[in-house]
Structures are given as structure tokens and as C-alpha cells.
Amino acid sequence: MSTLIQSTPAAAQSDAAPEKELRPPSYWPFVVPALVVVLAIIIFPWVFTIWMSLNEWKVGSATTFVGFSNYLRLTSDPRFIEAIGHTLVYTVLSVLLPLVFGTFAAVVFHQKFAGRGFLRGVFIMPMMATPVAIALVWTMMFHPQLGVLNYLLSLVGIPPQLWVFHPATVIPSLVLVETWQWTPLVMLIVLGGLAAIPTEPYESAQIDGASLWQVFRFITLPLIMPFLFIAGMIRMIDAVKSFDIIFAITQGGPGSASETINLYLYSVAFIYYDLGYGSAIAVVFFLLIVLLAAVMLYARQRMLWTEIASDA
């Protein structure tokens, strides 16, 4: 603190120098490092990706400028179009399910009961594990002949399922893993929201004779909505770019039934070494994410207005 005060007069002295007017703003040297970093690791890669997407760029052969033909190729690539569908289904399910279960878990863990702290700790454990390790464990659990899931089903008389080994059930099964892992995150966020709700509305609801569902629907839910929104946003960003779990469990299979844009992008760029086409996919994928984020922001904005409107 003392050094800071001491240095001030020195700075003031240099301010008094004659070339004061010609001097550039004193803050700009401090901006340069940040500017360089942003240019080098955000702007440059993006511009370069766009540039690559306009070229036929295959590893091991010459690159040629081809304009938008990579993008045109995308429109008639059945694998890419299917991948968009898979990504959307996967994202919607793995946002909604953790939100529903996470909210439920938060309401449960908000009650006071013996061993609550311990159980909360246990509940958030899936979130702490490494996704690839989880994926490998689940792969064995999903095994139709040897997996523990089918054994558990057999105990209650349900016939064995194919889980990730059938095109029709692969995405829901993957969402199951995603939900298992990320429900605790939603719970933590919502739990924070619940702690902030005052008790008065609940007391008056009790006096008015509201049922448990009514209390949840008309008091708890509206009040935790902003928190749910944040949780939804985080989940969406995570789910849309999800890679590790899908790659480790199915590698996009069976066939290409669980191939999301991210997995297809990986195959094209790093297994087929078609960097130009891969870049085109990356650009479209980026636009899609921006679009989804914009939709969510718009929804958030509208929600705010309705809140203001209802307050008025």
C-alpha cells in the first residue's frame, strides 16, 4: 500500500513533462498482452478455420482454393444431416432430464433429515469422476449378455435390452449416462436457489391450504426459474459439444446412429484428414451453437419481461 502511495508523486512528475500532448494514452501497453492473446488464440484460429473451409485441404496433398464447395457438399452429405438430428435429440434430452431430476433431487435435499450432508456428498460423486472412466464402466454395464443392467432388469422380469448396441436405443442410453453424471450439477445450482427463497410465501400457502404440488408449482418453481435457466444454459453448452462419453462408449455407432456433429467432425478432420471439409463442418457447428445460444438468450429476455409485467 505504501509503495503505491509513494509512486504516485513520481507518476505525477512524469505527467508534467513537456511532450504531454503527444503521449499516447497510458493504458494501451496494458491492453497489448490481452489483445495479443485474444488475437492469437481466438481470432486467428477462427479466421484460419474459415480460410481452411474454403480450400480443398487434405493432409499429404496440395491445397487448392475451392470457394464454397465444401459447404455445398455439406448440404448433400447424409451423414452430416443425420448428425445434426442426433445432436439435437441428444442435446434436448440431456438438458431436460437432468433439469427435471436435478430439481426433484434439490427439493428432496432441501428438506431437513438425518444424514442429509452425507447423502448430498454421495449424490454429487458422479460429477467428480472422469468421463472416459465412467464411459468404460458403463460400456461393460450395457453389455447385453454380460452387463449388470440386464441382470437388474431380469430381477424384475423385464426382458434384456440392447442399450447402446441397437440404433433405436443408443441415444437414450447415452443420455442415461449423461443424466446420471450431470443431474448433481443441476441439483447444486437449484439447491442454491432454494436456499435463497424466503419462508413467508410457504407459510401463507400453508394457511391457505395449498397442496404440495401447488406449493411447488406456484411458489418454488417460479422462484427458482432463474437458477434453472442458468443450469439449462450450462447443460446445453455441455451437451451440444459432448464428445468423450459418446466416443468412448459407441464411437458414434451402431452404424452411425449416435454420431453427433462433433464426432463426425472429428472423423473427417482427424481420421480422414480432410481438413478443409472438417473446417466447413466446424464453421456450421459454430453457427448452430450461436443460434441455440441466441434462442436461449431470447427466451431469458422474454422471461424477464413477463416477470416485470407481472410485477407491475
Binding site: 453389455h143 447385453p144 449378455q145 454380460l146 434384456p160 440392447l162 442399450w163 447402446v164 448396441f165 441397437h166 440404433p167 443408443v170 459407441t250 455407432g253 451402431p254 452404424g255
Partner: peptide
């Protein structure tokens, strides 16, 4: 073949074979 074979690589196939299934 065992159910779910559409998703089998060598690892799952070997598991089924080594288990005598």
C-alpha cells in the same frame, strides 16, 4: 449371434467367446 452384436468390436466379441457364450 448374441443380441447387440451390431455394437461389438473385438473386445465385446472376445468377452462373449471367453465366457463360453
Amino acid at each position: 449371434a448374441p443380441p447387440g452384436v451390431a455394437g461389438f468390436n473385438w473386445m465385446e466379441s472376445m468377452a462373449s467367446f471367453t465366457q463360453g457364450r
